[in-house]
Design a protein around this nucleic acid. Sequence first.
DNA 1: TGCTAGCATTCACAACGTGAACGATGTCAA
DNA 2: TTGACATCGTTCACGTTGTGAATGCTAGCA
Lengths: 157, 157
Amino acid sequence: MNDVKLSTGLPETVTFQLGTLGALIAERFANEIAVYALKPKHVGLLTALIHAGAASQQELAAKLMVAPSLVVSLADHLEQLEAISRVRDPGDRRRQILKLTDEGARLLTRCENIARTIDDDLLGPLPGRQRTALRHALKALAAQKGLPITSSRKDAT
Amino acid sequence: MNDVKLSTGLPETVTFQLGTLGALIAERFANEIAVYALKPKHVGLLTALIHAGAASQQELAAKLMVAPSLVVSLADHLEQLEAISRVRDPGDRRRQILKLTDEGARLLTRCENIARTIDDDLLGPLPGRQRTALRHALKALAAQKGLPITSSRKDAT
DNA sequence: TGCTAGCATTCACAACGTGAACGATGTCAA
DNA sequence: TTGACATCGTTCACGTTGTGAATGCTAGCA
């Protein structure tokens, strides 16, 4: 009853490793972009915008897989930072059209640099072959999953 | 000013992919273990216990990287499920010693099966070479990072 | 015996996100 | 045109998750 033999292999699963590593990295990323008064979800929104060019809040909510009400507060904040502009759609005055500003593009580039630095820190110690293999596999998985524009959060459970 | 050229490569970074995929997987895992009235952190605690054999709540808090007060509620819940036993350390009556019960081991095994299923779903579509490469690379990263016993959370930003 | 430290616990609180309700606008049929 | 209904953005109340400070025991040491 006391000494359990079955050493659960849970930490050996990709599910576990991916979840844990993802959380660790996401936390670090979140900490570093905090300098720009941004949180991961903001970066997600900016990224969605740079790809779409411009979009309504509803469309963004769908892309980010969050409630429309959350997009409101994200957009509020980004507008305050002058990272996006928010104008009524002349064709449908219910819709707010969000657009990346130059400042937004600048911010996004800075976040990208942070991400690349983290990439290097993370992959650096890995042997070259493993590094490229990981890149390819992750890319494939991301593509396969549709890769919602979302940056992942910080907790790790 | 309007058409931005620089297509940010953020989604191309490992940081982004790992964070996003990790969040997606963690969410799925969380949903599936909910059947057993467990959350990822509970699994983290059980996993820590099966490796340590037995531990005080403080030790577990350190391993899980969470506040001791959180361990209290996790342990409360697991105790209610009879997944762990909680007894005062006779040698130091301030400490509560947590131990995995048979039921706890059973639960953990079920969670492990869930994780393996998710692994298969995830890696299945990948070509064989990439699959093993990913496994190796993740294992290396996990080892390098110390792999805290923690299952990752659900948000994805 | 008294002081100080450590452990578990409780409690108030902050952060994050959701879903329901609401007002403004658009659409379509009568 | 008018009226019914849907859609968009916004606000608000709420649930969840986790933290940090305060508290009560218990240990250990002078």
